[in-house]
Design a protein around this nucleic acid. Sequence first.
RNA 1: CGGGGCGUAGCUCAGCCUGGUAGAGCGCUUGCUUUGGGAGCAAGAAGUCGUCAGUUCGAAUCUGGCCGCCCCGACCA
Length: 504
Amino acid sequence: MSTPTAITPTRDKDFPEWYQQVVRAADMAENSEVRGCMVIKPWGYGLWENIQRQLDVKFKATGHVNAYFPLLIPLSYLEKEAQHAEGFATECAVVTHHRLEAQKQPDGTTKLIPTGELAEPFVIRPTSETIIGAAFARWVESYRDLPLLINQWCNVMRWEMRPRLFLRTAEFLWQEGHTAHETAEEAIAETRTMHKVYEDFLRDHLAIPVIPGEKTERERFPGAVQTFTVEAMVQDKKAIQAGTSHYLGQNFAKAANIQFLGRDNTRQLAHTTSWGVSTRLIGTVIMAHGDDDGVIIPPRVAPNQIVILPVTPKPETRQEVIDACEALAQTLRTQTFGGEPLRVHVDKRDLQGGAKNWEWIKKGVPMRLEMGPRDITSRSVAVCRRDLGPKAKEFVPKEEFIQSVQERLGEIQDALLARATSLRDANMKKLETLEEFKAYFAENSEGGFALMNWAGSSEDEDTLSKDLKVTIRCIPHGDQFAEEGKCFLTGKPSSRRVIFARSY
RNA sequence: CGGGGCGUAGCUCAGCCUGGUAGAGCGCUUGCUUUGGGAGCAAGAAGUCGUCAGUUCGAAUCUGGCCGCCCCGACCA
């Protein structure tokens, strides 16, 4: 018998638990034996590889090149920038020894005892500003060496108190861009360029609309002058910071001594930036698009965009059906979507058809095709779109399907973006008073993005966030948020609305 | 680090109060049946009950230490 939904509980009943179950049902990742560290399984990693490859193309197109820096950072490096040090101090894993000594125990087992204490401990990178800064200091001598536009794909470690798969893990994968420039203007332009790259990527590839804006001082990256963010809304109406881009001013250049001889023959400090997105994007995709039957992956980044399920009711026609499915897959693979060859998989496993079908539903493959003896005779395929219900099935002449496959995947991509956009727009509200604000974020109210005129201080912000567990997600860019008014808390004049929300 | 809870088969858990050396469901294996579909029946494999010590003739069960994990806070991509 079929259950009403593949995932229990449903999103309405218990969103956090739904999320955990979905990650598991989709076989994307699992908790490992190492505290806070996940095992990313092939289906989840496949999604990451696509995100990585497609973003990398955009980084290269904006002039960046990839490089790799050490995992271990000398403790003293982290100490060089005061705010940065303070910001990351409480979540660092520290390496203090460089060898183990085997000690035989009375019971015959062997214990390994750390010995060889290091003169200076290393910190496993929580982010690489300091060590990349040190390299930049060596590489930059003249204004002619600038700009330096470097990106690194790597893992980082932040010893989080409460890990959750993809959203907040002790070790995670990300990319960190680090650039150095001759002038503040250039560095700020770079920061904005990458901010825009993230915004476009989220919208066009992950089908997630974001609100681009700037962080307040309280929410800023430790050591940054300005932090830009793209904020997405997921289905429980909370905000999630999906990517950040920082203008670091000359703070890190000063700390790492990134100096160059300028056009006017004077010694100057470089202006640096950094920007990153992480495997958190996977969690964002799951929470933005998933439904009560599992994940829904946007076609552009899906590890498989199409899965073909051979329907083999009789053993004597089995091989014929499988051959036909393989042939269809081959034909489809010659086509492209989003500039990449179609990723098509034929699921030939000897399992019950229904079981396979539901497995792919839970994994969120955008499109499933069924083909059996009757379809071969009628030269058609059964097409199931993941963004529609699990029962929705359309029989399409095979040739017509082959002709229209790009368009059909495009429809799914667009439908996901449209759905996510209307969810967000339906849950953004302009409010005017503190009473309205408190009611909006009351215990049993739905919440969402509150658009508020704001002129409060960091202390005001701190109080609000402690009382109501909401934070200013960003000061959004764009004319739609420019509006003369009074701060809802202090009554001071304000010319823009900011976004308040609960967040991940 | 504060406040709660939990460690028993691959997974989810029951058994513990009232000690007598192990159970269910799912998953897995095999066979038969079924086949446009998350199937049915039957048989089977699988656990030194987190760990160390104590009480006892006897401990998954009682007591204590240790380790680990989960949830709620503070922190966070």
